[in-house]
Write a protein that binds this DNA or RNA. Structure first.
Lengths: 334, 334
DNA sequence: TTGTAGGCGTTATCAT
DNA sequence: ATGATAACGCCTACAA
């Protein structure tokens, strides 16, 4: 691989001159400029970023650490990060923490070895003081994405608000009983339950929670719910995966959708469109989130002194499809 | 960020001594060793890979260029690559070519700037001579994954063989008519059709091909097929996405699965397990493929002189589930 | 066992 | 306008 020194030798000038030419510095004889450029082109010169970074202290690398690259949601996020960063001339070293704090720490160490200019992270535990300290030690701008970490730049979807949307939607669709699949610690549940309470005040309503993931257990729980409660049930699942599972089980149980039960998923996976019935789902603004995070990071890189932290919750958007369009369905039947 | 020179100053030794200690070189006074190690630990020293690579000409970076990180299949692949590489002490710079040759070329240029030690690529066009030349110019070991590129190390699933498996399976399940969703240029189709011809020699059989992706068009095509052909139909879709779509449409058309139609997808997405009926699908050995690719790359890194190229097709595996278990279903009903 | 010297490929700061 | 020269952080002789 050709170096500046080599080009200098070939063209009979000094190496710094080559540097000037290649970096577009005006102050250089047009003749020499051409000669050098020609030589560089011929040998397809590419500057050695390692050397550049050694002197300039900019690597043009951003470290990205996520909890699970295999997950379609994060994969999509990473894709948009790569794109936004690439446009700004930054490349991405990617690490997978695998939801493991220890491994996450190792990733941070490696990131440090590469002297990346900045960091974008999906933390395993966003509010862990220990983790925050580890990140702070890197002494580089870091932005958290997908989660809220107080005291740090964070771009994330407000899950409670998303849960609230789901609740509002299911109420509008005139469901009378409710079911949540997921963990009650999930912000989505908090928001879901709260709005439900408000909207169904005084009316007899039940909210069943299913924590299980195993299909048989979910089936049992569903059967118990439907044997106890007759009214049409609005179901909200913490992700599309679970929602699809429920869709299949309801089908088996011969429960009509959306008449007797309505289902809303989360993530708005491509599958939603292909299922029958099409699955309503809550979409996170992935691209926007990624772009905002990158933009913010670049901003910080240019103004390291700026110390105010951004807390930037984004809104999810509920996409209503057949699986929960109870009112629309009724209209049609008229 | 602390440097070796700084540690040297703090501990009153020379910088090379620090280097020796930190690199586990035996020949150093135990006392000094301890002193240096303590200091390094205290300041959480991490070597500057940029500097290391500058002198040692090893970056411990591998460049990974894929056509679409957002795709769950590639995301999973990337995850396993990251893991395997990480275990060997390599990190990954990841690029997304977006199926665009021009952008792919740009990625290769950036990769070159970082002087990565090796390359793992999912090429946009595996047999493009121009592309191969571009890769060759990098003068680093490169392995192709997911596709076969003659003259280069390639790890990929034999799609024709996978199609053949699908055909064999659907015949064993006693389907009499057949349907393929996808492109006829797809190796999967080639293998599928060929085996079908062999196995159904002399018997009246039809093989319908649906190229459309749009739901309405697919529905029309399906309806046309089923109005013309009465026998139970074995359906093979080029990916799970399409298979799910078909599953939904068949459901709408009140065609019983797996009795009247059997469906086999491709990629064995997690969804398969959650659908009703559960979707049979062909699984690619992602992890194995990724590990083999990384292993091979490391091998090449250690023996750059070795010039023989590996062509390594892997076998896909058909996972039979409810959507195509016609015979098993019949057995059960007895 | 330890320190000195040189060099990796750049950029930046001087002179010239 | 151009060329020496130093410096970035590290490693590898070589010398002591």
């Amino acid at each position: 691989m050709i170096t500046m020194a080599e080009i200098a030798r070939l063209t009979g000038v000094s190496q710094p001159t080559v540097s000037r030419v290649l970096n577009g510095n005006k102050a250089v004889n047009p003749e020499i400029r051409e000669r050098v450029l020609a030589c560089a082109r011929e040998h397809e010169f590419q500057p050695n970023v390692m050397a550049q970074s050694l002197v300039g202290s900019k690597t043009h690398l951003i470290g990205v650490v996520v909890t699970d690259i295999g997950n379609a949601f994060f994969a999509d996020l990473v894709k948009h990060i790569e794109q936004a960063a690439g446009q700004a001339g930054y490349s991405m070293i990617l690490f997978n923490s695998g939801y493991d704090r220890d491994h996450e720490k190792e990733c941070l160490d490696v990131v440090r070895r590469y002297r990346v200019d900045g960091l974008i992270v999906v933390p395993v535990e966003a509010e862990s003081a220990q983790w925050k300290e580890q990140v702070a030690k890197l002494e580089i701008p870091a932005v958290v994405i997908t989660r809220k970490a107080s005291g740090m730049d964070s771009f994330y979807v407000d899950h409670a608000e998303a849960g609230a949307q789901a609740a509002r939607h299911l109420c509008e669709q005139e469901y009378e009983e409710f079911l949540f699949l997921g963990n009650t610690a999930d912000e989505k549940y908090i928001g879901f339950e709260q709005i439900l309470k408000e909207l169904r005040k005084g009316v007899s309503t039940h909210l069943t929670v299913i924590t299980a993931k195993d299909t048989e257990q979910v089936r049992d729980a569903l059967e118990r719910h439907f044997s106890k409660h007759q009214g049409p049930t609005g179901i909200f699942a913490y992700n599309d995966r679970r929602a699809v599972q429920v869709l299949g089980l309801l089908e088996q149980m011969r429960i009509r959708i959306p008449e007797e039960a309505g289902v809303v998923g989360f993530d708005n996976t491509y599958m939603c469109e292909y299922l029958y019935p099409k699955l309503s789902s809550i979409a996170q603004p992935n691209q926007k989130m990624a772009e905002l995070a990158v933009t913010r990071l670049l901003e910080r890189l240019e103004h390291p002194e700026e110390t105010k932290k951004l807390d930037h919750p984004l809104h999810a958007e509920l996409i209503c499809r057949e699986s929960s369009d109870r009112v629309g369905r009724k209209e049609n039947e008229k």
